[in-house]
Amino acid sequence: MHRYKLTNPLFLFKIETMIRRFYILICAVFLVACDDGDILTVDLDFDQELGICDDFENSYLIFDTRTDPNESLTLVLPKPQYEDLFLNPTPEGEPVIIDISPTQARFNYRTYNINPDGLLCDVLPNSDLIIREDYPANQGTVEVTVTIEDDDNDGIPNIFEYGPGGIENPKDSDGDGIPDYLDEDDDNDNVKTKFEINDPVGDGNPANNPLDSDGDGIPDYLDEDDDGDGVLTRLEDANGDKNPRNDMANNAAGELVPHYLNPDETTPYDFPGYTNDNTYTKTVRTHFIVKDIDLEILRTDYIDLGTLTTIIEVEQN
């Protein structure tokens, strides 16, 4: 039996070099396969403008879709537990945290045979829409922030209609029991606030450049008598339709203006049972962030799912 001892330095060097290269290659493959960082095998370039299906009996379905390829990201929340997420703001810096689980939030990435937009809300599944791939998240959380910049949509952001103590001590300029940030007519003169403000700088703060038609130092949106003629604006509504803006006459300069902005028009018009209704729409924006999910094709600690915009009509008498 012959035994060989490798003593050639050049040969030993070649063997060692090959071993090092092989070891480096194995390590690289191992690091990629076992990396705990983000692994993305799908492109999540959705538009982040969310829709909602609220006709399902037991759940809300929030979704974002796209075509080419036909895909969706969906979030299912149980009813009525999370109804408030579409109605009222969350405290600043205090988002609602929801666990992803079979009884709380359910998050899925799906692919389809056709464009799913407009078909996801069908109570009875559409036979034309076929789910090709469905990847549910089994873990993670959903972080939800709800904001309402201008509750009463009167053109003045809430922050400028709160009192010195913030929302806990809101202003009520006309004393009608409705705080200004929820009142579409802050001076109760039947001319909506949004028609009585001036905001040339675009910051939403009417105090910067107030519209003050009679120059009495009281901005029109808080002035019961906008032209200073001694007749309340709400009584300068000649046709009684609760809209003084459409009752017109020529002023001293020959310009056609509403009676309530014309000091030459001083006839009061009062009507039995005349009340000021407060009906308005408010815009609720609900922002969803999905964190720490682990799908078969996607592992990530952060997905900005997007924002759902809800328009609510409010009536206060």
Rank of each mutant, 00 (worst) to 15 (best):
Thr67His: 11
Cys34Met: 08
Pro263Ser: 01
Asn205Gly: 05
Ile39Thr: 02
Leu73Asn: 01
Asp151Lys: 04
Arg20Leu: 10
Gly93Phe: 15
Thr283Asp: 08
Gly155Tyr: 12
Pro164Lys: 13
Arg21Gly: 10
Glu16Arg: 12
Thr233Glu: 11
Ile26Pro: 07
Asn113Val: 14
Asp154Phe: 04
Thr147Tyr: 05
Ile293Gly: 08
Arg20Phe: 09
Phe107Gln: 10
Arg234Cys: 13
Ser72Trp: 00
Asp183Ser: 09
Gly228Gln: 05
Glu133Met: 10
Phe11Met: 09
Pro219Gly: 12
Glu133Lys: 15
Gly230Ala: 13
Ile303Leu: 07
Asn58Gly: 06
Pro258Lys: 00
Asp270Gln: 09
Glu83Tyr: 12
Thr74Lys: 01
Leu10Ala: 14
Asn8Ala: 06
Glu57Pro: 15
Gly166Lys: 02
Thr267Tyr: 00
Leu182Val: 03
Ile303Arg: 00
Ala105Trp: 02
Pro210Gln: 00
Asp84Ala: 13
Phe11Asp: 11
Phe11Val: 12
Lys282Cys: 06
Lys282Phe: 07
Asp84Gln: 12
Gly163Trp: 03
Cys53Gly: 05
Glu224Gln: 15
Gly155Pro: 05
Met18Trp: 12
Gln81Tyr: 13
Cys121Ala: 10
Leu10His: 10
Pro89Gln: 08
Gly51Trp: 06
Asp180Arg: 01
Arg21Leu: 12
Ala238Arg: 10
Pro219His: 08
Ile289Gln: 04
Glu71Gly: 02
Pro170Ile: 03
Leu44Tyr: 03
Asn126Pro: 15
Asp241Gly: 07
Leu73Ile: 05
Pro95His: 04
Tyr109Met: 06
Val42Tyr: 02
Asp277Gly: 07
Thr281Ile: 09
Pro272Glu: 05
Asp301Glu: 08
Val96Phe: 14
Phe288Met: 01
Ile24Met: 09
Arg20Ala: 02
Asn198Ala: 11
Ile197Phe: 04
Gly118Pro: 09
Gly202Met: 07
Ile197Asp: 00
Gly228His: 03
Thr275Pro: 01
Tyr4Gly: 08
Asp43His: 07
Asp99Gly: 13
Asp152Glu: 00
Asp172Thr: 02
Ile312Lys: 12
Tyr162Ile: 06
Asp292His: 10
Ile178Tyr: 00
Val144His: 01
Glu255Ile: 09
Glu143Gln: 14
Phe63Asn: 02
